[in-house]
Amino acid sequence: MRPFDYARAGNVAEAGQMAGRFIAGGTNLLDLMKLEVETPDKLVDITRLPLRGIEETDDGGLRIGALVSNADLAADPRIRRDYEVLSRALLAGASGQLRNKATTGGNLLQRTRCSYFYEPSQPCNKREPGSGCGAIGGFNRIHAVLGTSDKCIATHPSDMAVAMRALDAVVETQKVDGSTRAIALGEFYRLPGDTPEIENVLEQGELITAVRLPKPFAGQHRYRKVRDRASYAFALVSVAAVVRMDGGKIAEARLAFGGLAHMPWRDETVEKALIGQEPAMANFDKAADILLAEAKGQGENDFKIPLARRTLKAVLADATKGA
């Protein structure tokens, strides 16, 4: 870990002007700083900012402060009642200890778990642009099958963000100049392309202050995470689903996927294909065909393609049963 300057932000307005890397839970940043994968010159400790509340918004949704811990968010009665998919996703992630420390804003900004990104001696375009990709042709069991590039095949490791993507969450930020903006989560992340080191649309010094959820979506909420051990492991495939039935047919299906891409994956053509359909396996297969039409395995992770199909079908079957 390189030496760094350390300062505490006293209020939101000054935080961005302190010209440093924000640290809150620190569970991912310090992990990477110890390996010198991350080497910030300055840390701005934002843990004392008043961003720990969860408040109701005028349009019937919730505004979640950026510093709300994953544990507190998962346990919040409103989240459990109205946004069950989010509570489930949070509880499927990490461990009790990590959820107590990790924050809402920080979770969105987690870096990939790619082993080549984590090993400074290996090529990685994300860590060191232009150095190459160790995972392509290497051990890529956990890597992406959708939206990859020849520069990077990493996945985004968050469970929380997958559920938020299904829920049309909006990220609220404050820029260095004090102006604020709201970014739909669907526009927040970037695919790796030629610049995998740029993972989202945040500007230098722009601080996530909250995540806003629209008013609750009716329907069955599911979060299914598939992994190699029963707990405390990252997703190989995960599916967040909110499915509403009407008259025995699918009226609305909000579907987002983890473990498949550089960002929480959502494909509205998949959802449209399901609307008005009966909950039959053949229809679920058609949705999976659309989802996975462009999927490309890298060898070790080829199994993710059938796994995603099977998991999606099972989730849809479960969310539509008895309707």
Binding site: G25, G26, L30, Q97
Partner: peptide
Amino acid sequence: GRRINSCLTLAVM
């Protein structure tokens, strides 16, 4: 009162 991994946090915080 809440459990955390003390290895992943700075003492100064």
